[in-house]
Amino acid sequence: MNAIPAQEIKRRGIAAVDDLIAKGDLHVIRNNQPQYVVLSEERYQELIVAEQEAYYARVRASLEDLKEGRVKRGTADDLIKELKLED
C-alpha cells in the first residue's frame, strides 16, 4: 500500500493524493503512524459489496445449520456451563 505524510497533503492538497491513488490504496501517515486510509470510490464500493456478500454467506450458512439440526437450543446458563465459564 502506498503511503504519504499528512504534511504532504497539507502542503500540496488533493493533488498529492491524486498522484498516488492511481497506484492503489493510500495510507496517510501522521506522527510516524498510519492514521487514515484513502480509497478510490471504485475500491470502496468493491469492499462494501464484498462485505455484504460475506454477511449473506454467513446468514445462509447459519440458516442451513438450523435447517440441518446442527444448532443446539438452550439458555444462556446452558451455554455458560457448556463453555465451562463458571467456577
Rank of each mutant, 00 (worst) to 15 (best):
Q33R: 15
A22E: 07
A16Q: 02
L66K: 13
M1Y: 08
E53V: 09
A22G: 13
E53S: 12
A50M: 06
K23T: 01
K10G: 10
Q35K: 10
K84E: 11
L83M: 09
D25P: 02
V28R: 01
Q33I: 11
A61G: 07
H27A: 09
L83V: 03
I29K: 07
H27G: 03
L20T: 02
G69D: 07
E82T: 07
L66T: 02
R11M: 08
L26T: 00
R43F: 02
H27S: 08
E46W: 03
I9F: 04
I80A: 11
E46P: 00
D25Y: 03
V38L: 07
Y36L: 15
A15I: 04
G69P: 02
A57L: 12
E51Y: 07
I4H: 04
A50P: 00
V59G: 03
D25H: 09
D19I: 05
D18R: 15
N31H: 12
L47G: 10
E68D: 11
A3D: 03
I21G: 01
E46I: 04
V38C: 06
Q52A: 08
Q45P: 00
A15H: 04
D18W: 13
D78A: 13
Q33A: 09
K81F: 02
K67N: 07
K84N: 13
G13E: 09
Q52I: 09
I80V: 15
V37R: 14
L66N: 08
V37L: 15
V49Q: 09
